[in-house]
Deep mutational scan, measured.
Amino acid sequence: KDKDLLKGLDQEQANEVIAVLQMHNIEANKIDSGKLGYSITVAEPDFTAAVYWIK
């Protein structure tokens, strides 16, 4: 199951987060929520590491 990592990002921010996570071998998903911006989700086992790397 995926957990929400970040919400309300613009496309550039979302792409930067995806890139950082991929560099650390964390699979992440970018979801277009329309006017609400983009959300990033990661698998539950990767959540703690993902939070660490996006600081």
Rank of each mutant, 00 (worst) to 15 (best):
K1M: 10
D2H: 15
D2V: 14
D2E: 11
K3P: 05
K3W: 10
L5A: 02
L5R: 01
L5C: 07
L5E: 02
L6C: 14
L6R: 03
L6N: 02
K7W: 14
K7N: 11
K7A: 10
K7V: 13
K7H: 14
K7D: 07
K7R: 13
K7G: 10
G8Y: 10
G8V: 03
G8F: 10
G8L: 05
L9G: 02
L9T: 02
D10A: 07
Q11Y: 12
Q11P: 09
Q11W: 13
E12M: 10
E12K: 12
E12F: 11
E12S: 09
Q13K: 10
Q13V: 07
A14R: 03
A14W: 03
A14M: 04
A14Y: 03
A14V: 04
E16K: 13
E16S: 10
E16A: 14
E16C: 15
E16H: 14
I18Q: 03
I18T: 03
I18G: 00
I18D: 01
I18F: 08
A19W: 12
A19D: 04
A19V: 06
A19E: 07
V20P: 00
V20R: 08
V20L: 15
V20T: 08
V20F: 15
V20A: 06
V20D: 03
L21P: 00
L21M: 03
L21H: 00
L21V: 01
Q22C: 11
Q22D: 04
M23S: 11
M23W: 07
M23C: 11
M23Y: 10
M23V: 07
M23P: 01
H24Y: 09
H24I: 05
N25E: 05
N25K: 07
N25C: 12
N25Y: 06
N25M: 07
N25S: 08
I26H: 00
I26C: 04
I26Q: 00
I26K: 01
E27G: 09
E27N: 13
E27P: 13
A28C: 10
N29I: 12
N29T: 12
N29C: 10
K30V: 14
K30W: 08
K30P: 03
I31L: 06
D32T: 06
S33M: 15
S33H: 15
S33A: 12
G34R: 03
G34N: 04
K35A: 13
K35Q: 10
K35G: 11
L36M: 11
L36V: 06
L36C: 14
L36T: 09
G37K: 07
G37L: 08
G37I: 05
Y38N: 01
Y38A: 01
S39E: 05
S39P: 00
S39A: 09
S39W: 10
S39K: 13
S39L: 10
I40D: 00
I40P: 00
I40G: 01
I40F: 02
T41N: 04
T41I: 08
V42S: 01
A43E: 05
A43H: 08
A43K: 13
E44L: 10
E44A: 11
E44P: 07
E44M: 08
P45N: 14
D46V: 06
D46Y: 11
D46M: 09
D46H: 07
D46C: 09
D46F: 09
D46W: 10
F47T: 02
F47L: 05
F47I: 04
F47V: 04
F47W: 13
F47A: 02
T48I: 12
T48D: 14
T48A: 14
A49K: 10
A49W: 11
A49E: 10
A49D: 08
A50N: 00
A50G: 03
V51Y: 11
V51A: 10
V51S: 09
V51M: 14
V51I: 12
Y52L: 06
Y52N: 06
Y52I: 06
W53M: 03
I54F: 05
I54Y: 05
I54E: 01
I54G: 01
I54R: 02
I54T: 05
